[in-house]
Design a protein around this nucleic acid. Structure first.
Ligand code: NAD
Ligand code: NAD
Lengths: 278, 278
DNA sequence: CCATCTTTGTGCACGCGTTCACAAAGACAT
DNA sequence: ATGTCTTTGTGAACGCGTGCACAAAGATGG
């Protein structure tokens, strides 16, 4: 299965200099802009006029130097000795993220999760508008969820086209995800947010981001185990001891290393972003 | 607000050499192990005995060299000229992630999202057991959701202690998240999965991972906007040109653009991981 | 106008993560 | 045994992201 080569990292040799110099906001920065925007919006609601990089960084949970560098990619919007103008920055970040325009979204698969997302108020708060709810089950279509009628997936192509939908959210069972994805893409969707635990295969030019609860929990479990194991971590674990159904040779013999109280890993990656070039 | 310094990056100068050499699986690798595990489980169910790094990498959506390097941190579990034994690898990764043991989890805030998570079957499939559902609303407590009674948050401490819960999932409104987090931590929880759009402040030794739908959509919007704008990207954009209501007003009209066949960027970070030292 | 104080913007160094490329290891056939 | 063929495991190079530290910019006061 999954013969196709997904996650095309595509070094894109042509874009060596990362967009000459003019634009080219680092991916890591783009991922943090929404965080800053949220903190700034809160300040704005409290009518705070300006904020220093130190304060804002604390509110967003990042290093102040990192925040300043992030903002430097957007331009010089701060005033030395004073800080940043909250309203102005809200506007600049919103514009950079494309939130000054309307983004119609379709949610496909109105089950448990689809229901929750449809009812989520945080959607509309940032220019994202639920254009339609879609499901393949005739028993569900026609129902009204969060004020919207659930339409049948037969209407997908028409809706995507007429509403100019470019973002699709997939909350179907994993087995249907790839198929739904293909249809969305064929209909014109170029960005997909996937909640199904599946690796989606998409053509160049289509962006996919995934949200996987199970993976998050497993990562937490890993660190949890380490924390617990650090106490008695001397007698090594049973990599060999509790010899599993050793299938073949599998030379192991883990060089026992006493992991002392040393802990503390830094920070880490959560998910990757995949895209492509036309 | 949020005066405290959250997201303590904690360079942890002591752990310079990253755990001497023995253990010390890179964070990026840990984040991918669940992905490999999922692909391997699928192969296992189809009774496939062995798999090459190339095949498995394709199924997991990663580069094969990366996959091999990732596995090399776990030990030498492959056989040159053949590949990896599926069953054996499933066991090794499960053990490394700590999935061979039971992880009781509590979900706090049984609203739209809490309901969906409680009903999610993918939970139990990997050793994660919902030990309890908690909510502060008396109108909700007592209800049975997904076969479990919703208990009042008053019982949080007792439940966490008696059930030995170390992982907590927060699905309360943002305003209550920090407070709930504090109580969970005080009760003994050391890993938190936060769905509320809030920066949580936790003491050292507690891991926090967040899932933020809004941020994901905003990142997609950014790339979507770029794709659309690339068509006319010659005349530079109006970072200054379309001078926004300078440091004062905000809200502005949208420079409408048609969505076309744009393309091209690399991949990027999704979320960060934060932890601490005991 | 000058001095001082605050805070931005960034040059620089460092470490992690990714990827290439290839030697070594082992399977398999003869 | 020996040779060939496949695939692993990893050394090394490179690029990105992070954070320190500081010069420059501008506010503020005298
Ligand atoms: N429920 C959760 O909390 C949760 C958490 C993490 C991930 N997920 C994932 O999200 C997805 C949805 O989960 P859920 O609990 O809502 O499942 P669900 O079964 O409640 O809902 C799935 C919905 O998709 C519809 N559907 C099935 N095939 C379809 C198709 N081809 N086209 C359109 N609609 C189709 C079904 O009719 C159903 O309404 C699953 O992949 C699940 O693994 C769910
Ligand atoms: N619904 C979604 O799809 C979605 C998506 C992304 C993020 N979120 C976030 O997830 C959270 C929950 O969303 P929701 O739609 O389920 O909201 P909701 O209002 O439906 O549910 C919140 C629940 O939390 C309970 N609660 C409130 N204060 C509490 C406290 N102090 N202790 C315990 N329980 C408490 C409420 O009684 C309610 O049952 C919010 O922070 C929201 O921003 C939701």
């Amino acid at each position: 299965m999954a013969t196709g080569r997904s996650t095309q990292h595509n070094p894109n040799p042509a874009a060596g200099t990362r967009r000459s110099r003019g634009r080219g906001i680092p991916d890591a920065t783009v991922a943090r802009l929404p965080l800053y925007l949220r903190a700034l919006t809160a300040l704005s609601e409290r009518s705070v006029p300006t904020v220093s990089s130190e304060e804002l960084a604390a509110a967003a949970g990042v290093n102040s130097a990192k925040l300043r560098k992030d903002f430097s990619y957007l331009g010089s919007y701060g005033t030395r000795g004073v800080g940043y103008d909250v309203e102005y920055l809200v506007y600049q970040i919103s514009r950079e993220l494309g939130l000054t325009q309307d983004w119609p979204v379709v949610i496909v698969g109105i089950g448990n999760l689809g229901h929750a997302l449809a009812n989520y108020g945080g959607f509309a708060s940032r220019g994202f508008r639920v254009a339609a709810l879609l499901d393949a089950d005739p028993a569900i279509t026609g129902n009204v969820v969060a004020g919207l009628p659930v339409r049948h997936t037969d209407e997908m192509e028409e809706i995507v086209r007429s509403e100019r939908v470019s973002i699709g959210v997939i909350t179907t069972p994993p087995g249907a995800a790839q198929q739904v994805c293909d249809r969305l893409v064929a209909a014109g969707v170029t960005s997909i947010l996937n909640f199904a635990p599946t690796v989606l295969n998409v053509p160049d030019g289509v962006d996919v981001r995934k949200v996987d609860l199970s993976i998050e929990l497993q990562i937490l479990a890993f660190h949890e185990q380490r924390k617990a194991g650090d106490e008695y971590r001397d007698e090594d674990e049973g990599a060999d001891a509790e010899a599993p159904p050793a299938p073949a040779a599998a030379v192991v013999s883990t060089p026992g290393r006493a992991v002392g109280p040393g802990r503390g890993h830094g920070h880490e990656r959560g998910q990757e972003y995949e895209e492509a070039a036309g």
